[in-house]
Amino acid sequence: MLETKASPNISKSTGLPRKRFYRARAHSNPLSDSHFPVPISPSHVDYSLHYPHVFLPSSDQNDSSKKIQFADIGCGFGGLLISLSTLFPETLMIGMELRDKVTEYVKERILALRVANPGQYQNISVTRTNSMKYIPNYFEKGQLSKMFFLFPDPHFKEKNHRRRVISTHLLDEYAYALGVGGIIYTITDVEELGEWMKACLESHPMFEALTEKELEADPVVELLSSATEEGQKVARNGGQTFRAVYRRIMPPL
């Protein structure tokens, strides 16, 4: 711990990691072969590493039935996770991010928050992975109740559309990981991408749109644009956002 305190990456006043030391490329190629470890199957995900207070590493008396329920895909600097953590203190959630430096930052940020607020932020964690490839390695069928795709890379060129994190084929996998009734949240400040995501979800037989009333009643919806770093940036610049929130349903027979 002494080392952490002496680290120049950590701000002396707040104890939080400073973003300027975790600069990374804005984009990472999701098509390239990965060089990070991937769990063989969901049962190989070590929960005691991610949530040491909930899953004590040495004891077998863990509440083993507890599983990750929220996944923030492409969590970036982790703003949403941190807001959700206190809103749903009993729910385990994980951020998935492909850029390793950004993942390192979120890791440090969560650790610092846990030190500064004892007993809090024990339900959030982050992992470096390519969620377009490895969702089934992390989550069992129907395990998740919420998935977030906030301000994903727009990939404007048609040639690169297959790099988009929302596509008809990938929605099949998200529908597998989400339980019936689970909700998928997407938001972007790029109109073209907003339309694309909405069209993919609309045409998919295993998703239906939430009604306006349901959207208003959901406390998470307003966090989509306010909690994330990217969302705050858009608001600061007075930009527009495009939202699509859909529920996982049983496929029609």
């Binding site: 063989i40 199957s41 969901p42 490839k133 089934p136 390695n137 069928k141 008809t168 929605l171 099949d172 996998e173 529908a175 597998y176 998919h204 037989p205 295993m206 496929p251």
Partner: peptide, 29 residues
């Protein structure tokens, strides 16, 4: 080649796509 086996329900109208994943068989290394 990513060590993965996907089991998909073969739909009545396959031309509309096979969206319902029954399971993933994971274990190969």
């Amino acid at each position: 080649r990513d060590f993965k086996i996907r089991v998909t329900v073969f739909p009545k109208k396959p031309l509309d796509g096979a969206h319902e994943i029954q399971s993933f068989c994971l274990g190969h290394t």
